[in-house]
Design a binder for these strands. Structure first.
Lengths: 344, 344
DNA sequence: TTGTACGCGTTATCAG
DNA sequence: CTGATAACGCGTACAA
C-alpha cells in the first residue's frame, strides 16, 4: 500500500503528458519553457510531493552547491562565529556547508580532506590543524582545480586565497600599548610558532620590544596550547619568578589563556593592572566579564567566515578577478580595557 | 594535456583487464573477491589517483552517510559544544554532517529542512527555532521514514527520539537551593514558554516556590531572548523596583542573561550575593569568570551531541530497539558557586 | 570468484 | 518552445 518510490520528474512528466526534459527545465524556471507550462509543472510538483534529488543532479551537472569546511576545533567562540558567518553567506547564495574538525590532528585533517573531496564539494574552506606540516593532502583539490580558501591558520599557496587579519600589526600595536603604559618587562603567552598566526603575533610583539629598546629573552616567551590550564600554568610560572624577574605585563595570544592567568594571579594576591597588566587576543566574551576587563584585539570570526565564503563563491561564479591579490587582510582593531591601563 | 576527466572504476578496470563490477566490489573489500585481486585493485586505485564519487554511489545505494543538523544559531557556546560532540560521534561512524542555522526564524527552518531533504540526508538532527509552531515542514522526513532526532528544543512526536535534560528538575533544584539559602523573593529570567526548555524551567521554578509556600506573581517572570542586552534590561527593571519589591535572588534560564544582569547590578552598587543572589543555566565559560562565580546547571552540549548522533546512527544501523523509550534524558547537575551563597 | 547488463534521477545535446 | 536519447559513476541481480 504505502508506495515508497521517489517521486521523480518522470512522474510529473507523465502526469502532464510532457517530456521529462521539459519538466527538468521547467523546474529550474528556464526561460526557454512556456510560462504556462512552467506554472503547470510547478503545480504538479507540489501536488505530487516532488522533491528534487540533489545528487542525481550533481552526478550529471558536476556541481554540488556544497562547500567543505575543515577546522581544528568546533567548540571555541571564535570558530563558532566563523561558522555562523560562513553559513549565513553560503545560505544567501544557495550553498550548503559540510563541516568537519581535525581536532588539531594532521592525520584526521587528511582523512577529512579526502572525505570532502569524495563528496565533491565545490570548494574547500580550511584552517590548518596545530601540527599540520605540509598540504599534500590538498593536492587532489589543486589538481582538479577545486578552489581552496585558507583562513586564519593559513599556508602559502599561490593558487589559493588566504583570509587573514594582520596578526603582526595587531600584536605590535597591543604590545606598544603596554609599553606606552609604562610596562618594561612584557611576557608573551604564545602558541606553536609553526602556525602563521602565532608566529606573527610573536614577531609583532618582539619587534615592538625592539623598537622601544626593550630586551627580549626566551624566558619571556611561554609557549603552550593557550588553554585554560595553560593560562593557569603560566601564572604559576610567573609566581615562581623572583620579584625582579617577574613581568609587569603579559600579552597573550588568546583571551582564554590571558583570563585564566589573570584569575590565578589575582587569587595569589597580585593586583591587575598595577602589578601585572594584561592584554589578550580575540575579543572573546570572557574578556568583557573578567575584572578588570581585558584589553584585546577585536578579531571578528563572523566577518572572516563571511569573507571567506563570499570570496569562494565569487570565484566559483567566475566573478572574481583571478589576477587580484590572493590574500585578503581583514581589520582587527585593538580594544583597550582596564586590564592594561596602568595608573600614575 | 591536462586530462580533466574523473578517474572512475572503469579506468581501474581497464588498467587491470577486469570488469568494473569486480573493481566496485574489490574497493569495498568484499570477501567475494579474490584477495590478490583486491590488492591489485587497491594499488591501481592509488596509482591512478582514483577517488570514489560519493553521490554516484548514493544515487545507486540510496544512502548518503550524511546527517543533517539544523539549529537555531551556531554561535553560542552551548551549540558549538553540541556540534563538536556530534561531529565526533559522526566521524567515528563514518558519517558526515551538513549544518544549517535557522537564526530563530521558522521560515528559514522550513527552507533548510527542505534543502536537507533534497540532499537526502540519512537522518536529521534538529533543535527548533524560537518561533517554530508546528513541524509540518518535517513531514517529508516522516513520510519517507527518515529518522529525525530532536534535541534540546524538542517537539513531541511519537515516531522520533528526543534528547533532553531534565529542565524541570534542574530548575526546581536550583530554585530550591536559592530558597535554602534564605531567598524569599526570587525572580526568574525566562525565555519564550512556547519552547519546552523555557516552559519547563519556568515550571520547575514555580513548583519550587509553591512547595515552599512562597508566592509567585507574573511580575517576577521577566521574559526575554536571554541575550546580553536582555540581561542588562532585566537589571534596569530590578533597579527600578522599590526596595520592598526588589528580588533577593534571580534565577536565569541561561548564563548570559544572568551574567550581564549581575554586571549591571554590581555597577549600580548592589552586592552579590548579599543583596541579590544569582543562579544561571548552562555552565557557560563566562559563569566561571564572573565574580562571584555563578551557580549554574552543568548542561553538557558535548554529551548531548554525542548522544543524539549515536542514537540516530544506531537507529540507522537497526541496532536500536524501536520499542525502547523514545525520549532520552541526560543528567545535568547543579554546580554551586559563590553567587548564590548567602552569608549568615 | 568474476562478468554482463541494467537502473538510480537528473541534465546536456541535438534535432525538430 | 519541446522531445528523444544518451550519459554522469556506481552497485547489484543474475548468469557464468
Amino acid at each position: 500500500m504505502a508506495e515508497n518510490r521517489e517521486v521523480t520528474i518522470y512522474d510529473i512528466a507523465k502526469h502532464l503528458n510532457i517530456s521529462a526534459a521539459t519538466v527538468s527545465r521547467g523546474l529550474k524556471n528556464s526561460p526557454s519553457v512556456n510560462k504556462n507550462t512552467r506554472k503547470k509543472i510547478a503545480e504538479a510538483a507540489v501536488e505530487l510531493g516532488y522533491q528534487s534529488n540533489t545528487f542525481a543532479s550533481s552526478l550529471r551537472s558536476k556541481s554540488t552547491h556544497t562547500l567543505g569546511v575543515l577546522v581544528p576545533r568546533l567548540n571555541s567562540y571564535f570558530m563558532s562565529s566563523v561558522l555562523a558567518g560562513m553559513e549565513n553567506a553560503a545560505n544567501r547564495h544557495g550553498y550548503n556547508l559540510i563541516i568537519a574538525q581535525s581536532l588539531e590532528d594532521a592525520e584526521k585533517e587528511k582523512l577529512n580532506a579526502a572525505t570532502m573531496f569524495n563528496k565533491r564539494v565545490d570548494g574547500l574552506l580550511i584552517s590548518l590543524s596545530y601540527d599540520t606540516q605540509n598540504i599534500n593532502h590538498l593536492e587532489p583539490f589543486f589538481k582538479r582545480k577545486i578552489p581552496v580558501v585558507f583562513f586564519d591558520r593559513v599556508h602559502p599557496h599561490n593558487a589559493s586565497t588566504s583570509i587573514v587579519i594582520n596578526n603582526y600589526g595587531a600584536a605590535y600595536n597591543i604590545t606598544k600599548h603596554l609599553i606606552d603604559q609604562g610596562c618594561r618587562r612584557i611576557m608573551h603567552l604564545g602558541g606553536n610558532v609553526l602556525r602563521n598566526v602565532y608566529k606573527e603575533r610573536f614577531d609583532g610583539y618582539r619587534q615592538a620590544l625592539k623598537d622601544h629598546d626593550l630586551s627580549f629573552n626566551e624566558k619571556m616567551h611561554f609557549i603552550s596550547t593557550l588553554s585554560e590550564k595553560a593560562g593557569a600554568e603560566a601564572a604559576k610560572h610567573i609566581l615562581n619568578l623572583t620579584a625582579a624577574k617577574r613581568p609587569d605585563a603579559v600579552f597573550s595570544a588568546n583571551d582564554t589563556a590571558a583570563v585564566y592567568c589573570m584569575i590565578a594571579l589575582k587569587t595569589a594576591g597580585l593586583r591587575i593592572p598595577e602589578d601585572v597588566a594584561f592584554a589578550g587576543f580575540n575579543n572573546d566574551p570572557i574578556s568583557k566579564v573578567i575584572e578588570p576587563n581585558l584589553t584585546t584585539v577585536d578579531y571578528s570570526g563572523d566577518t572572516m567566515g563571511n569573507t571567506a565564503v563570499t570570496n569562494l563563491i565569487n570565484h566559483l561564479k567566475g566573478i572574481s578577478n583571478l589576477y587580484s591579490t590572493n590574500s585578503i587582510t581583514l581589520r582587527a582593531d585593538m580594544i583597550i580595557r582596564a586590564s592594561s591601563l596602568k595608573k600614575g
